[in-house]
Structures are given as C-alpha cells and as structure tokens.
Simulated scan of single mutants.
Amino acid sequence: MEQQTSKLVYGMIAGALIGAGVAALLSPKTGREMRASLVELAELVKEKGPVMNEKGHEVTEKGREVVEVVKESIGVAKEWKEQIQTATEEVKTELAEFKESQDEDSSSDKSSNSGSTAAAGSSSSSSTTTGSSTSTGGAKTGTTPPAGSNKSSNYSV
C-alpha cells in the first residue's frame, strides 16, 4: 500500500513536470525565451521539489491513517452486524415460541370450554327455571342477563 501511494505521488509530480515542459516547448516563443523559461522552470523545480516531496510524504502518511481508521470502522460495523443478527434470531425464536404457546393455550381453552359449556349450559338452564319460579322480585343468581339488557343489572354470571 505504501509503495503504491509513493509511486502515485511521484507519478503525479513527474506528470506535472513533463506537462509543463511540453507546454513550454509548444508555446510560440523564440529559442532564447524558451531557454529562459526552461531555466526558470528548472530552478522552480529545484526550489519546490523538496517541499513537494515533503508534502507528498505527508499526504501518504495521512492516507495510511485514514486507511487504518476505515479498516477499524469496518471491523466494528461487522461486529455490530453479527450482534444485531444474533439478537434478531433470538427475538424471532422467542416470538415463535410465544405464538406457539398462545396457540396451544387458545386451543386448550377452546377444548376445555366446549366440554364445560355443555355441562354449564344444562346446569344453568335448570337454575334459570328454578330461579325464576322460586324468586319473587329479588336478584336472580346463577343466570345470565337477557340479550340487550343493561350489563350492570343484578344478574350474576
């Protein structure tokens, strides 16, 4: 990675120098002006070269730091992903178990209610006739209120 970045920086510097040289050669100047421009460019390169080299190394170092931070961030993101997937699977499992237990409870309630409803129905019909024949205006016990009546009546369920 370091070698690739270094090659990239050197390639950019070399490309800039070559481009400047080609531009100087292709410009409409006399030979004397051209040589003067090339001498100025060479002096500029000698002067700015070490600074450009230092800046290139700084950019390379910053690039390495960024790469390390990105790698670390990716690692953390992968850990979080694994934890979230594990938690999701646990929740799905618990939800499925809860749903199964609710289904079992409702089916067992239905089967036990169907047997007890028949028995309760026969006993409540006898208590209804008994309660209505023996009671004279008092509260009826053991009967259900008639349909459409007020639910807060004296009837007990």
Rank of each mutant, 00 (worst) to 15 (best):
E43D: 11
S106E: 13
N53M: 09
S153G: 14
A96F: 00
Q4C: 08
I84C: 10
S153L: 04
E33A: 12
G21C: 14
M34V: 02
K62N: 12
E33D: 12
I74Q: 15
L38D: 05
S116F: 01
Q85E: 12
V45C: 11
L41G: 09
E65F: 10
G15A: 14
A119V: 03
L41P: 01
Y155D: 07
S125H: 04
E104V: 06
N53G: 08
I18R: 11
S112A: 02
E33R: 05
L95A: 11
S126Q: 07
K29V: 05
T88R: 04
G49C: 08
R35C: 03
A23T: 11
S125W: 02
A87H: 00
E90A: 06
T143E: 15
E40T: 10
S37M: 14
S108H: 12
R35S: 09
G19Q: 05
E58I: 14
T88Y: 01
E68C: 01
K151W: 05
A147C: 04
A77M: 04
K99G: 09
V39S: 13
L44E: 11
K48W: 09
P50Y: 03
T130W: 00
R32G: 04
G148L: 08
K55S: 11
K62S: 12
V157F: 13
E47Q: 13
Q85Y: 02
E89G: 02
S111T: 07
S149C: 03
T60D: 08
G49M: 10
K7Q: 15
S101N: 10
S133I: 00
H57I: 03
T5W: 15
S133T: 09
G121V: 00
M12W: 08
T88S: 12
V70R: 11
V76A: 10
Q83G: 11
K71P: 00
T136Q: 09
S127N: 15
G138W: 04
K92V: 00
E58M: 14
K81W: 01
S73Y: 08
K78R: 09
V91F: 02
K110Q: 09
K140F: 05
L26R: 03
G63S: 08
V91T: 06
K46L: 15
E58P: 07
G137K: 00
N154I: 03
L8F: 14
A139C: 03
E89C: 00
I74A: 15
A119Y: 00
S6C: 11
A16S: 12
S123E: 01
V9K: 12
I84L: 15
A118P: 02
A87G: 03
S101C: 01
N154S: 10
S152C: 06
S6R: 14
T141D: 10
R64C: 00
S122I: 03
K55N: 13
E89N: 05
T141A: 14
D105G: 01
A16R: 07
D103F: 07
S122H: 03
S156I: 01
S127T: 07
Q3Y: 13
R32M: 08
M12R: 10
V157L: 13
N154L: 06
E94H: 03
E68H: 07
E61L: 14
V66L: 10
F98A: 15
K140L: 13
E89Y: 04
E82I: 02
T93Q: 07
P145G: 02
T130L: 08
